[in-house]
Design a protein around this nucleic acid. Sequence first.
DNA 1: CGTACTATTGAGCGCTCTCAAAACCAGTGG
DNA 2: CCACTGGTTTTGAGAGCGCTCAATAGTACG
Lengths: 252, 252
Amino acid sequence: MTASKVISFEALRVACKNCSLDTLCLPVGLTLDDVERLDDIVKRARPLHRGDYVFRNGERFRSLYVVKTGSVKTFAPSPEGGEQVLGFHLPGEIIGLDAIEKETHACSAKVLETSAICEVPFSRLEELSSNIPSLQHQIYRLLSKEIGQDTEMLLLLGKKSAEERLAAFLLSMSKRLRKRGLSPTDFYLSMSRHEISNYLGLAVETVSRLFTRFQDEGLLKVDRKHVELLDLEAMETIVARRVVTGDRQQMT
Amino acid sequence: MTASKVISFEALRVACKNCSLDTLCLPVGLTLDDVERLDDIVKRARPLHRGDYVFRNGERFRSLYVVKTGSVKTFAPSPEGGEQVLGFHLPGEIIGLDAIEKETHACSAKVLETSAICEVPFSRLEELSSNIPSLQHQIYRLLSKEIGQDTEMLLLLGKKSAEERLAAFLLSMSKRLRKRGLSPTDFYLSMSRHEISNYLGLAVETVSRLFTRFQDEGLLKVDRKHVELLDLEAMETIVARRVVTGDRQQMT
DNA sequence: CGTACTATTGAGCGCTCTCAAAACCAGTGG
DNA sequence: CCACTGGTTTTGAGAGCGCTCAATAGTACG
């Protein structure tokens, strides 16, 4: 909490000319000067096209990447050619956090549509964070947040039915779009059914059937990649239904 | 990489009188002086008994905790009284990393057997890390590692069969015990079948049946909580078998 | 206007869950 | 020492969810 000119969230957004820098900043604690220094190390967003890689499994880790526009999927290619989709990343979200430890990317990242991606060289970010405590704190928070999200996903995959998984997925998209000022009820999915099903640990056919069923039940309208959520509340109910399957007591 | 007296891994272990400090340190980059300062902020390990809480869901986040001896389970209690087991933590492992962001513990941690737990006040650790770049780096790595582990677990729950899950669980225990210098093939499980099944997203009965089957197949011997792994290689094969279910190609 | 891919729909099967009961274990008090 | 009790673990039988296989429909692109 450096005393000098602490900037507001809005000022911050303006200050971030070339990148979704607000992802890395908190609305408090960073001075305009700090933001400028941060801005300096962020490389200009380069536009990537559908199918382009942001980074590949096995590459040496050098930078974090922030999605500015578009969307990215991360996935772990398995030897036999199959892949496990690990996540979908929307504007404002950071990818590459899992590679810090081993200094090698354990997964690949591919853009799903034409996207602008900012590169943040990690070593320089690290240096900078040594000198700006609130930036350091923000990075700790970011990493911690990622852990929290993984934990939620873990719960989803471990304990929830196909229905609950798809509902949770759609609600997650909805909330993240809302956060970026986009419509939380009317959007296009940039990923295929196959990718969704892979991500959710389901078969493509199951996902397809569920979309149809949700539509029949009036929860949403779906046409190809275009989704319109009609009853967010009902979907919340589906997700919250049962957190744990058949759980009697538990001592310990 | 401060030039002065950089200590070795062994020296480090010796220097850590009251805690598994090596978890927080890297064998390189920290001077003896650094380690002492780190040691100063770590509170003496207090012994907890089976069923005691390290922290509870909803409590304000103040500290990270390092398991020195014994074992801990973390879990997210669900409203209806059920719980979702999030992880089991062995000596040398850190818990609480997911609470940094929200400054509130989103899960609870309970010791499974008599255990010694070190407390590391996070704000002091954070301060210290501002002044010791290599400590900062190590914390980034720790957080990143946690993300990587969650990702692996995610893959496990999303895509693997009951058989593969239990094998992966046992191998994970085995590897972690080996890392601490304990027998990787002969050990006692401090958690109940119920907790294992909950963790793996399976029914208790399924886990029980699998233990029996693994034993029949000569993979292990099991008696109550005592497990003896007889064929680590075969178990590795089971886990690696199929990373992704029914995955044809995938374009994009 | 085909070609290739993606999405949907249908039928059948298998893995894992659920329900139910028995076996086993640990601790308690007679 | 043994019966009693509450708990955990094991074992068995049956059902259902979601997967697999297969075919059809719809869509994008050359």
